[in-house]
């Protein structure tokens, strides 16, 4: 939840919980998010919601991003940011640059390997397993 310099509150959101390319969500999700917002700031009940929108989230199997080299020379991967992308852009960019320049991962992103799935080292912050729609 954040407030823009103009005064409007921007908050969200939730995954719809199912694969969708429609970019519009549904009323149930709107209700859930509104209830969560009101639980955090009760006085939101007298403030009006202006607009709702939905996009497409690229969810990885454990809800954590992948920053790694691939089996192809000079092809690197920085993807699977789920809904944490925008605010993590500066740090992600820095770590990715580190990988490109030095050939080894930055400490912070050492575990964000593509082969972690195969090897069983998931970064499963939600403890949900290989369920992309619940992270």
């Amino acid at each position: 939840m954040s407030q823009s310099d103009k005064g409007g509150l921007v908050f969200g959101g939730d995954l719809d919980g199912y694969n969708s390319y429609a970019q519009r969500g549904n009323l149930a999700t709107v209700e859930n998010v509104a209830e969560e917002g009101k639980a955090l700031i009760p006085s939101l009940s007298r403030v009006r919601m202006l607009r709702s929108w939905g996009g497409i989230m690229d969810m990885s199997m454990d809800g954590s991003p992948i920053i790694d080299r691939t089996h192809l020379d000079n092809l690197y991967l920085n993807a699977g940011w789920c809904y944490g992308g925008f605010k993590a852009t500066p740090a992600s960019g820095f770590c990715f640059a580190h990988l490109l320049a030095k050939g080894t991962s930055h400490d912070t992103t050492r575990q964000m390997r593509l082969d972690r799935f195969e090897r069983g080292y998931l970064i499963d912050e939600n403890g949900q397993g290989a369920q992309p729609n619940v992270h």
Binding site: A34, S45, V47, M49, W53
Partner: peptide
């Protein structure tokens, strides 16, 4: 541009 809900703003009261 894209029209999205809500037609007029409403309270997220519940």
């Amino acid at each position: 541009t894209t029209f999205r809900p809500f037609y007029t703003p409403y309270h997220s009261a519940r």
